[in-house]
Amino acid sequence: MWLLDVQDLGEPDADLTTALTLKNGNPVYALSEVERAAIHAVYALYEAMLGQPDPGLRPAALDAVRQFMHDAYSQVQIGGRLEDLRARILASTQACPYCGFGEVKDLDHYLPRGTYGELAIYPRNLVPSCGPCNNAKRAVYPGMPAAQGPGLIHAYFQLLPDEDFLHADVEFDADGTLSVTFRVDSPGMDPALAAKLQFQLDRLKLNARYRAQVNKYLSEQRTAMLMLHGAGDAIFSEFLQRSSAALAASYGRNDWRVALLRTLAADPAFCAAPEAYLGLPV
């Protein structure tokens, strides 16, 4: 959740040529050497800006080709001339980085191709994502009016502090139902980054979408948890802490599962009687 390894660029020059050349060899648009160099300069600036907006990403030298680059994204779809690029990016992760559980089927343009056509097929502007997250994010872009929100973090380039900033607030209702709400809270974090992370949780409606995931996850863990609880509350709490740490090694310390187990391990009511809550709807 949150971050992915930076995408391998592959062969950008070859991708440009393939995107703008029909299978019969006829050009859709014949790039000049000046335009090709300008596209590479845009790619380099994108890296330097860590994917954030900059006027230099829309140089005048690319005014003629911008729409063709925008339209070339159709070749990244299944059956297109660049479908291998799509397959490679989707295969780079097993779960959507925006939510941490969704099946990756879409490619999200972090900077929208409607504005930045030059980046329509650039691998590091394409974030593998699930359909619900991609649909929820569509109208969100870096630099949008502040009244609309601060935008989402870049899954490839955002620097996140090595600390626990995702927290799960758990309440137990009288009927044994768990109520779980995730939030971002880190006193030492830059307020602008904290606002962006919380905005991402809210914009993608993750708290509502996590309910089914929490139910499913706790149901899968139910047998092991109840067996370990027989050894005593303290050992059970330690088991939850160690499970949280093990998941953090695989998914990061601010994955939703990690935050959930971290909270449950510190909750006396749950550690005293997990059987009263496990297996019931969240």
Rank of each mutant, 00 (worst) to 15 (best):
F182L: 01
D169E: 11
L247I: 06
Y210N: 12
C99L: 02
A72Q: 04
E220G: 15
A120Y: 08
L226F: 02
L197Y: 15
C133P: 04
G80Y: 11
M69Y: 05
G10N: 15
F182D: 00
I121C: 03
L82D: 05
Q52W: 10
A194Q: 14
Y73N: 00
T93V: 11
G131V: 05
G252E: 00
Y46A: 00
C130R: 07
V34D: 15
A146I: 13
A248T: 02
Y29F: 10
D162L: 12
G149D: 10
G56C: 13
Y210A: 04
K205W: 00
R113Q: 12
R222K: 11
A174T: 10
R88H: 03
D63A: 01
G279E: 13
S179K: 15
D255G: 07
D164E: 09
V28F: 09
R58K: 13
S250V: 13
A168G: 06
T177M: 12
D84E: 14
S244D: 08
F172H: 09
Y98R: 05
P145Q: 03
D71G: 03
F157E: 05
N215L: 01
P281K: 14
P150W: 07
L240Q: 03
E171C: 09
A60I: 01
R242E: 06
D162N: 12
D13H: 14
N215M: 04
D13I: 15
M69R: 06
F165K: 10
E163F: 00
P274H: 09
F172A: 11
F239V: 03
R36A: 06
Y141H: 11
R203K: 15
Y210G: 02
Y110C: 10
L264S: 12
L159H: 11
D71C: 03
A41K: 12
F157G: 02
E47Y: 06
A249L: 04
D108W: 06
P145E: 00
E35F: 08
I153T: 12
P145S: 04
Q52D: 13
T263D: 11
L62A: 06
A155P: 14
P55C: 08
P145N: 02
E118M: 14
F239C: 02
P150A: 06
G100Q: 07
D255K: 08
A245S: 10
D173E: 13
